[in-house]
């Protein structure tokens, strides 16, 4: 199995103090990888470094075998890497429709961008009913749908998701998890999922990467984290 994303000895942070320290792991193509860890472990910082919002101090990120160093943030989505940031990043002042259009503006293939938009409306019918509503009028679940749908319009090969279930009702977050799994199985999408909600993340993940204080302390098949109580206790505390 090939890895779509290879992270090698990556360090980064804000200012002089490093947050990530020598992070190394791989994400196999077509899988769901869950990044787990306590608040402040550096999960968001990791995603921000992967998508170029933060510049790594050392280390390397390879996407599809190509080094991402020096690739500007706005070009990554053209290469097939989409990042749904923490807090979802719905532009509150724009309407649902505008948010979705924004996700496909860079695409040359206008027809397919439109098709992708229609697919999103089919996938999330609450959005279809609220096309003209502004982002700030949406509920938490709708916002998550919008953020996820907007990322899908880019037809990404790798999707970075930062805490998609944060603040959602368990039922809604469960639906989103199921959907992610389906996308993965159905269209060959690869998902890198940051989650606080360890149980639901492990429920759909193939691999678990546990972070603590900016380091990767364990990378293992998700099934092992699910089943091995001792391991779970030691690393995830439950």
């Amino acid at each position: 199995m090939t890895a779509i994303l290879e992270v090698d000895e990556l360090s980064s942070g804000y200012g002089p103090v490093p947050v990530l320290r020598d992070v190394t792991f791989e994400v196999p193509t077509g899988t769901v990888t869950a990044i787990l860890g306590a608040n402040g472990a550096g999960k968001t910082t990791l995603l921000r470094t992967l998508s170029g919002l933060l510049r790594p101090t050392t280390g390397r990120v390879r996407f599809d075998g190509e080094d991402l160093r020096g690739v500007p943030v706005e070009r990554l989505v053209r290469r097939g890497l989409a990042h749904v940031p923490e807090g979802r990043g719905v532009v509150a002042e724009l309407t649902v429709e505008e948010n979705l259009r924004l996700g496909g503006l860079w695409r040359r293939d206008r027809a397919d961008a439109r098709r992708a938009q229609d697919e999103v409306y089919q996938l999330f019918d609450p959005l279809a009913r609220r096309r003209r509503h502004a982002g700030h009028q949406l509920s938490g679940g709708e916002r998550q749908m919008l953020a996820l749908g907007r990322a899908l319009i880019a037809r990404p090969r790798l999707l970075l998701l930062d805490e998609p279930s944060l603040g959602l009702a368990p039922r809604v977050s469960g639906q989103i998890m199921t959907l992610l799994r389906q996308l993965c199985d159905g269209s060959g999408l690869t998902v890198l999922l940051v989650e606080q909600n360890v149980r639901s993340a492990l429920g759909i993940a193939d691999q678990g990467v546990v972070m603590s204080l900016g380091r990767v302390v364990m990378a293992t098949p998700a099934a092992q984290l699910r089943d091995d109580e001792q391991l779970r206790h030691a690393y995830l505390g439950f």
């Binding site: 200012g15 002089p16 103090v17 490093p18 320290r21 101090t57 050392t58």
Partner: peptide, 13 residues
């Protein structure tokens, strides 16, 4: 030379 190994001051606010 890796910053993580060098004891540095806290970042200025």
């Amino acid at each position: 030379t890796r910053p993580s190994e060098v004891p540095t001051e806290r970042p200025p606010a």
